[in-house]
């Protein structure tokens, strides 16, 4: 639903449940500078979710939804997994695809939206777990990148199949023993960020979701670059605290431990040359905007 349509019929406003009234009055639709700092002061685009208490995935969802630059014209594509339990509770259009099919669905969707709304920016964002992205859906993931489809793929990497009790996944670390992988994994964790780079992604980041400002930056970069240039990929560590034997309050520390310089989620990014130019351009424009605003404020105060 585009921004001008997100309004309640005036005669029905008083009977709408409060969360819908808030969504219209206090959400940050249409605000170009929206970001993680809006959390707590405006209506978030996620309602009560059904994830486990303390799940880092819920943090990731909140930061990502707060950072989307164009939520009223964004469609998210999800797949089977814990993420699919959350999508019914977000204030953004979303499509649930067959397990692993998300990048194929997103390809068609992005092309159709481009034809249907030629004068309008429509962002497509895939958000799926590591099973959907790397195991069952690897074919679709890679083919979308080979074809240079203009959308962002986000993988919530919890390094196993959490929703079904802890089976081995391609992104699980070597040697890790899970509830349903009792002999430990024999192979290395798939190096998908490197594969993404080689497959044509213009912006690739591997990190945890421990820092909301970082998530805002990488999400915005990924979406802007996907809009203008080509595919982008974010691999975000969202550990399943239940499956790794942690308590509800230990998710954040787990991510901090996993992002130390020698660890597997130490911040890594790859930016193609055209993407670097675009980021430089965007940074310059942002500086100009801020300078103009400062000047305007100074004029008002004089």
């Amino acid at each position: 639903m585009s921004l001008e349509r997100i309004k309640i019929a005036p005669e029905m406003f008083d009977i709408m449940p409060p969360e819908y009234q808030d969504l219209v009055q206090k959400a940050t639709y249409g605000n170009e500078s929206r970001g993680w700092k809006d959390i707590g002061t405006s209506k978030e685009l996620i309602e009560e979710h059904s994830l486990c208490a303390g799940c880092p995935e819920s943090m990731a969802f909140r930061y990502i939804l707060a950072s989307l630059p164009n939520p009223e014209d964004t469609v998210m594509v999800g797949s089977t997994g814990c993420t699919s339990l959350v999508f019914p509770h977000v204030g953004i259009h979303n499509i649930h695809s067959l397990f692993g099919n998300q990048n194929a669905i997103a390809s068609g969707l992005k092309r159709a939206l481009t034809v249907r709304f030629p004068g309008r920016v429509k962002d497509v964002v895939v958000l799926a777990g590591d099973g959907a992205t790397v195991d069952i859906g690897l074919d679709m993931t890679l083919q979308a990148w080979f074809r240079q489809e203009k959308f962002t793929t986000i993988c919530f990497d919890n390094e196993l199949y959490a929703n079904t009790g802890g089976q081995e996944s391609g992104l699980m670390q070597k040697g890790f023993v899970a509830k349903m992988a009792p002999i430990g994994k024999h192979f290395e964790k798939v190096r998908l960020p490197e594969i993404a780079r080689e497959s044509g992604c213009h912006y690739v980041v591997n990190c945890t979701v421990s820092k909301p400002n970082l998530i805002e930056k990488v999400v915005k970069n990924a979406i802007y670059i996907a809009r203008e240039i080509g595919p982008t990929y974010l691999q975000l560590y969202t550990p399943c605290i239940l499956e790794i034997g942690k308590n509800s309050m230990e998710g954040l520390q787990e991510m901090r431990d996993a992002e130390k310089p020698t660890e597997r989620f130490a911040y890594r990014e790859y930016i193609s040359e055209p993407a670097k130019e675009l980021i430089a351009e965007m940074t310059a424009k942002e500086k100009e905007r801020k300078a103009a605003l400062k000047k305007q404020l100074a004029g008002q105060n004089a």
């Binding site: 639903m1 309640i8 019929a9 029905m12 709408m16």
Partner: peptide
């Protein structure tokens, strides 16, 4: 009819 997504919808709400 709850959402005023076009004129007809708004009229129906009234």
């Amino acid at each position: 009819v709850l959402w005023a997504w076009n004129e007809k919808a708004a009229k129906k709400a009234t």
